[in-house]
């Protein structure tokens, strides 16, 4: 029932797809981490913060798939690669999640910490950089880690804008050989192979940081 010959052919091809997936995840996540922090900090500013909030809510409550094809279509005439578009759209989409995580971390910092900063007249870069963020981020590391896994699991959507990630490779080969069972099952297995151990790591992180 399981076609071993076909599997031999599939695995190296899927690995090249996995490499694309990893690139998209790592770069997109880096963008989400930085942009999310910026959003979380800007949101504390009065009017601008309100506008930023509405925009992030809009991005967060609409499908990333539509955002992908939208931006992909808009830039159809430019020579930006689909992978780059994928990285940017995923990164921006997930920055709306990481922003919420940072925000809850920042709000979790005791009021007395801010007051102590005021009492010492610390400049704001020290308030954020030396007092608030180190405490806030430590607490939210596991939650941020979750979004790394979530993002990894969203990369098959890049298939829709013709990025040659794993699912698209499986789709091509499956169509060529009229065998989709092995192809898609292996893709699923590959996801499990990455997702399950990373979930274990996150749980460790939670135990380590949640206690603080």
């Amino acid at each position: 029932m399981w076609d071993v010959e076909f599997t031999r052919l599939l695995i190296p091809a899927l690995l090249t797809g996995l490499w694309v997936t990893v690139q998209a995840t790592v770069l997109g996540y880096a963008l989400a981490l930085v942009l999310g922090l910026a959003v979380a900090m800007v949101r504390r500013v009065k009017v601008v913060g309100g506008i930023v909030f509405v925009v992030t809510e809009f991005i967060r409550t609409t499908p990333v798939l539509v955002q992908l094809v939208f931006i992909f279509s808009l830039s159809a005439l430019s020579d930006v690669s689909p992978l780059t578009i994928g990285i940017v759209v995923l990164g921006v989409h997930y920055s709306t999640y990481t922003a919420e995580v940072y925000r809850s971390g920042i709000e979790g910092v005791a009021k007395g910490q801010w007051e102590a900063c005021r009492a010492l007249s610390l400049p704001s870069h020290r308030v954020w950089g030396a007092v608030v963020l180190p405490q806030a981020i430590r607490k939210v590391i596991p939650a941020l880690g979750n979004y790394l896994i979530a993002m990894f699991k969203d990369t098959p959507l890049l298939f829709a804008i013709s990025v040659p990630e794993m699912l698209s490779v499986a789709n091509d080969l499956g169509g060529q050989y009229f065998r989709s069972f092995e192809a898609y099952t292996l893709v699923g297995a590959a996801f499990l192979l990455v997702a399950v151990p990373s979930a274990v790591v996150i749980r460790r992180l939670e135990r380590r940081y949640a206690a603080v």
Binding site: K153, D154, P156, L167, Y184, T185, G188, F191, L192
Partner: peptide, 17 residues
């Protein structure tokens, strides 16, 4: 298992495999 595998992959699996 079902958290670990992306929804789109599951959909392809149920739809084609």
């Amino acid at each position: 298992v079902f958290r670990g595998v992306a929804a789109l992959v599951l959909l392809y699996w149920f739809g084609y495999s």
